[in-house]
Amino acid sequence: MSEINRAAVAHLARLAHIEMTAEELDKMAGELDVIVDSIKSVQEVARPEVPATSHPIPLTNVFREDVVGETLSQELALANAPDAADGRFKVPAILDEE
C-alpha cells in the first residue's frame, strides 16, 4: 500500500519551495514510501500509552537568564544579504500575500 504518491511529494515540494523534475518526483515518491512503511512497523510496537518522542535526551528546562548579550553590528548583520538599503535587507516585492 502506497502512502506517499507522486502528487503528495509534489505538494510537499511546493510547500518547501523545492523545485523537482518529473523523474525526481517519481524517485522520491518511491523512497519516501519505503521510509513511511518502516516507521509504520515501529508504530506497531509503540502502544498508544507510549508518548511520542521528540527529544532522545531526557533533558528539560534548559533556560537562559534574561540578560543582554552580544549582538551583531548592522554591517555584520547585512554582510551576507543579497541586497540591502538603508541599513535593512532588501527583498523583492511580495505580491498576493501579506
Binding site: A77, A85, D86, G87, R88, F89, K90, V91, P92, A93, I94, L95, E98
Partner: peptide, 12 residues
C-alpha cells in the same frame, strides 16, 4: 502598502 510596492526592506 504592499499593493504596488517595488521592493520591501526588512529590519530584524
Amino acid at each position: 502598502r504592499i499593493q504596488g510596492a517595488e521592493y520591501s526592506l526588512v529590519d530584524y
